[in-house]
Simulated scan of single mutants.
Amino acid sequence: MNLYDISVRTITGESKTMSDYKGKVLLIVNTASKCGLTPQYKGLQSLYERYREQGLEVLGFPCNQFASQEPGTNEEIARFCDLTYGVTFPLFAKIDVNGPNTHPLYQHLKAQAPENQNQDIEWNFAKFLVDRSGNVVKRYAPDTQPQDLAKDIERYLNE
């Protein structure tokens, strides 16, 4: 399966395919609003603001699979992210990242990641970096701070 063939639904219910992001460097993150790592939204937004003009897209996929830390509706999640962290990067409808109902995007990301290939997502805020050609080039642990990704992002933006 090609990354760009995968369908996703925005947090407002709009249907898209990942091909909308073709040619961009992507940072794909499973997010949650009630997690100890939730303040990473601030760092993710900062990366987005810093590198968007150069071709970075940060894509947030809320997930309630880890200690029920994303219990809200898509509307509540969007409002929280906007009001609390000023998130302007694209957010998507809540999905599963592990188990029998794993979203096809996360099946693809886990299968293609060079590190921890095919391993389950361990917690909220696991991150995948995808190059401009749609290749999954790096997987980061949930506790990796967004600012620590800047060098890798710059490298792939400049390729």
Results as ranks from 00 to 15, higher is better:
1 M>R: 05
2 N>Q: 08
6 I>M: 04
9 R>F: 13
9 R>E: 11
12 T>N: 12
13 G>W: 08
14 E>Q: 11
14 E>H: 13
15 S>M: 06
15 S>K: 09
16 K>C: 00
17 T>Q: 12
17 T>A: 10
17 T>E: 15
20 D>F: 12
23 G>F: 07
23 G>E: 04
25 V>H: 08
25 V>L: 05
28 I>T: 02
28 I>L: 04
32 A>M: 04
34 K>N: 13
34 K>A: 07
36 G>H: 15
36 G>W: 14
39 P>I: 00
39 P>W: 03
39 P>Y: 01
42 K>G: 03
44 L>T: 07
44 L>F: 13
44 L>G: 10
47 L>N: 09
47 L>Y: 13
48 Y>F: 06
51 Y>C: 09
52 R>I: 06
52 R>N: 09
53 E>R: 14
53 E>S: 15
56 L>M: 07
56 L>V: 03
56 L>W: 07
56 L>F: 07
62 P>M: 07
62 P>K: 10
62 P>V: 04
63 C>V: 02
63 C>F: 10
63 C>N: 02
64 N>E: 03
65 Q>V: 02
66 F>W: 14
67 A>S: 12
67 A>V: 08
69 Q>I: 03
70 E>T: 02
70 E>C: 02
71 P>C: 10
72 G>C: 07
72 G>H: 05
73 T>C: 04
73 T>K: 09
75 E>M: 01
75 E>G: 03
78 A>N: 09
80 F>G: 01
80 F>D: 01
82 D>T: 11
82 D>Q: 09
83 L>R: 14
83 L>P: 12
85 Y>R: 02
87 V>E: 00
88 T>M: 12
90 P>A: 08
90 P>K: 08
90 P>S: 14
96 D>A: 06
97 V>K: 01
101 N>R: 09
102 T>G: 04
103 H>P: 00
103 H>V: 02
104 P>K: 11
104 P>V: 04
105 L>Q: 07
107 Q>N: 13
109 L>E: 00
114 P>M: 14
118 N>K: 12
120 D>G: 13
121 I>S: 01
123 W>D: 05
124 N>C: 03
126 A>M: 05
127 K>N: 00
128 F>C: 00
128 F>R: 01
129 L>H: 06
131 D>H: 11
132 R>P: 05
133 S>V: 07
133 S>F: 14
133 S>Y: 14
143 D>S: 13
143 D>R: 13
147 Q>M: 11
147 Q>L: 15
149 L>W: 01
151 K>C: 14
151 K>Y: 15
154 E>R: 13
155 R>I: 09
155 R>L: 12
159 E>K: 13
